[in-house]
């Protein structure tokens, strides 16, 4: 087997599965899921100190071979997102940021105007910007043009588990940019992750599908296998779809001829 690594924002990754830490019931459950997933990148959010829910997550991950990727979840404007990214860089000593600018709580869809503004500012400030965006290829190209290190289109609304609602858009988006494409949001189960990879995505980021599964560790293992299977299938070159049957057994020598 040749070595199939992902070059992402200056780092080389063997795993093409990125795991969000949100929704895990405990640090122990999160650690088990991280280990089972084989991931090398785990996202965290930045929140006000004082609340105890989910704090200490970086300590829980400290001895695992993972990069911590802060996000700007909860930010509704470019201004908020830029500040939170700067706070995350200070707190975590990383130039990586998963950029989220989400003003609508019902859909959790990104505001792409604010997103593009924030991405431009953060690239100029030296960040490796990984923006959470819609499945619009034109927006993806704009994000690439301003210097984003990857684009992260949704498959379906965050936390919905609806899978990839518009596979054709994701495939078109993949063709529109040269930076890595990471399918982010909407994954419900393993076949969704495999489909993302078969569509040509370079990686998958998911959280709820694992952390809120009945058995998070087992689902993490399933996602690991699905991402690998989808990646292999995409590289292997699938057969073309046909309207009619095509026998796989030899046609010559059948009885009755």
């Amino acid at each position: 087997m040749d070595i199939d690594e992902l070059s992402l924002a200056g780092r080389t990754l063997r795993s093409r599965l990125l795991l969000g830490s949100g929704g895990a019931t405990s640090h122990a459950a999160l650690r088990e899921a991280v280990i089972a997933s084989g991931t090398q990148v785990v996202t965290v959010s930045m929140r006000r100190t004082g609340g105890s829910v989910g704090s200490g997550v970086t300590d829980a991950l400290a001895d695992l071979p993972v990069h911590v990727l802060p996000n700007t979840s909860g930010c509704r404007t470019a201004r908020e997102a830029v500040l939170v990214a700067e706070l995350a860089r200070e707190a975590l000593s990383t130039d990586w940021v998963k950029l989220e600018v989400v003003p609508d709580e019902r859909t959790l869809l990104p505001d792409v105007v604010e997103l593009l503004n924030a991405a431009t500012t953060l690239v100029n400030k030296g960040f490796h910007v990984l923006p959470y965006t819609g499945d619009d290829p034109v927006v993806a190209r704009r994000l690439e043009d301003v210097g984003c290190a990857a684009v992260m289109p949704l498959g379906a609304p965050i936390g919905s588990g609806l899978g990839i609602r518009n596979p054709h858009a994701v495939a078109l988006l993949r063709e529109a940019v040269t930076v890595p494409v990471i399918l982010d949001a909407g994954i419900g189960t393993a076949s969704d992750a495999a489909l993302a990879m078969e569509l040509g995505c370079d990686a998958v980021l998911l959280a709820s599908a694992v952390t809120r599964a009945t058995d998070p560790s087992l689902m993490a293992s399933a996602m690991r296998a699905a991402v690998q299977a989808g990646r292999d299938a995409a590289r292997a070159g699938r057969i073309p779809r046909r309207h009619t049957a095509r026998a796989s057994s030899p046609l010559a020598g059948v009885i009755g001829t």
Binding site: V57, N71, A91
Partner: peptide
């Protein structure tokens, strides 16, 4: 406000301070 500036940065009246740290999320 960078960590190196914490000791010398005085909080004026009406200052709005945010103190954030990493949590589970995303």
């Amino acid at each position: 406000v960078h960590r190196e500036q914490w000791a010398t940065t005085v909080l004026r009246t009406d200052a709005v301070v945010e103190v954030l740290s990493p949590m589970q999320g995303g």
